[in-house]
Amino acid sequence: ENVVSAPMPGKVLRVLVRVGDRVRVGQGLLVLEAMKMENEIPSPRDGVVKRILVKEGEIVDTGQPLIELG
């Protein structure tokens, strides 16, 4: 699984990683606000951040690609 998608609609509050960062399974990639709750979106696997597909403040839909892992 190379693309991390939004599990719910919401607003991207914070991106916690940068392109080139090594991440571990379960590590927070970004914080999504949904229904006034902050939800940290975890990495599904170990890898390297290849691309960040959203910006802070952006509104996303369920299933929208957020981050690509390499």
Rank of each mutant, 00 (worst) to 15 (best):
E1Y: 00
E1W: 00
E1R: 00
N2Y: 03
V4R: 05
S5M: 13
S5R: 01
A6P: 15
P7G: 06
P7I: 11
P7F: 06
M8L: 12
M8E: 09
P9H: 07
G10L: 14
G10C: 01
K11G: 09
V12I: 10
V12S: 13
R14W: 13
L16N: 11
V17W: 13
V17G: 11
V17F: 12
R18F: 09
R18S: 12
V19D: 13
V19Q: 10
V19Y: 04
D21F: 01
R24H: 02
R24K: 12
V25A: 15
V25T: 15
V25Q: 15
G26N: 06
G26M: 09
Q27V: 02
Q27H: 02
G28F: 05
G28Y: 02
G28A: 13
L29R: 00
L30Y: 05
L32R: 02
L32M: 13
E33K: 12
E33V: 10
E33W: 06
A34D: 09
A34H: 14
K36P: 08
K36G: 05
K36A: 08
M37F: 12
M37P: 06
E38K: 07
I41Y: 14
I41P: 08
S43E: 00
S43M: 15
P44M: 15
P44N: 14
P44H: 15
R45Y: 15
R45M: 14
R45I: 15
V49C: 01
K50T: 15
K50W: 05
R51A: 14
I52L: 06
I52S: 04
L53D: 09
L53F: 12
V54A: 09
V54M: 08
K55C: 01
K55Y: 06
K55P: 09
K55G: 08
E56N: 02
E56L: 06
E56H: 07
E58G: 05
E58S: 03
I59L: 14
I59W: 11
V60L: 04
V60C: 01
D61Q: 09
D61A: 07
T62L: 02
G63A: 10
G63M: 05
P65H: 08
P65I: 14
P65C: 01
I67P: 00
E68H: 00
E68T: 00
E68Y: 00
L69D: 15
L69N: 04
L69S: 15
L69C: 00
G70Q: 13
G70P: 15
